[in-house]
Simulated assay, not measured.
Amino acid sequence: MARRLSYSARFPYPAEQVYQAQSTARYWDEMMAGFEMFSPKCEVVEFTSDDLGLKAVLRQTIGRDQLPPIAQTVLKKDMVITREESLGIFDAGITKGDYTASIQAGPGSLKGWQELFPTDTGCTLRKTTEVKVFVPFIASKLEQLMLVNLVDLFRAEAAYAKDWIAKNA
């Protein structure tokens, strides 16, 4: 059974400003460079921003020794996560997109959708995630672990976005 989670990042900036930040390769490059303090290798594999929207493909390697014991029972090597983020063309009402994450030889799936929309105080980027692990007996524990770590990641990315926009806009 898949588990779902919604996370909302609130920004004191207009939605268009958040969208414009994410539409630059530098935004993603600097975010991945910042994550290298936690993981030995983080990189932007692909980035496009055009009339159809934006897409970033990110790859992050986490050493097996950094994984919780329950994850080490399933993964026998370093965990390589490939994530694809996309947002459609900017829409002043609501800009929609999606994201996926996969782990090489991983025992499950992670997918979600995101919506960027204006609020009275700026804007919100809401991400709704669905995870599914296909390992009997420990699936629910791994799914919960993934969601908890994903919230931490989304918080860190929201803090990064606020700081990046404040410095670069």
Rank of each mutant, 00 (worst) to 15 (best):
M79Q: 14
Y13K: 05
Q66M: 10
P12W: 10
A9Y: 07
E30V: 11
Y7W: 12
P107N: 03
L150Y: 13
G106K: 07
Q20Y: 03
L5Y: 02
A169H: 10
R3P: 00
A161V: 08
M37C: 07
T48F: 02
S23G: 15
F90H: 08
V45S: 04
T124D: 14
Q20K: 14
A15V: 06
P118R: 03
M146S: 14
S39P: 00
R64G: 03
L116H: 07
Q22H: 11
D163G: 08
C123M: 03
V135T: 14
P68I: 09
E157F: 12
I89V: 08
K76D: 10
K76Y: 02
V80D: 05
K111C: 04
I138G: 04
V131N: 01
L67N: 04
A21Q: 07
L58Q: 10
Q144N: 14
A156I: 06
R10A: 14
T121H: 11
S23T: 09
F137S: 07
Q22I: 06
F117K: 13
Q17S: 12
A21G: 09
T82Q: 12
I94N: 02
D163K: 15
D51M: 02
F35M: 13
Q66G: 00
Q22E: 10
Q20N: 12
L145V: 01
A92M: 02
S102L: 08
S6E: 10
R126A: 04
D50K: 10
Q104Y: 00
R4F: 09
G34I: 03
K77Q: 11
I70K: 01
A159G: 11
L147M: 07
A25H: 09
G88N: 07
Y99E: 03
D91Q: 06
A169L: 12
W164G: 07
M37A: 15
P118N: 04
M79I: 00
A161P: 00
A139N: 13
E85L: 11
R126C: 04
P136Q: 09
Y27N: 01
A105P: 00
L67K: 08
P69E: 05
L58D: 04
K167N: 13
W28Y: 10
A139W: 05
K141F: 10
M32I: 02
L153H: 06
N168H: 14
G34A: 13
G53W: 09
V44S: 09
K41Q: 15
D91K: 08
W164H: 05
S102G: 13
F47A: 09
L145Y: 05
T24A: 10
V151I: 14
W28R: 11
L150T: 12
V57A: 08
Q66S: 14
A161G: 01
P136C: 10
P107L: 01
E16M: 06
F154L: 15
K111W: 02
S102D: 09
D120C: 00
K162R: 15
E130Q: 14
G112I: 09
A156R: 12
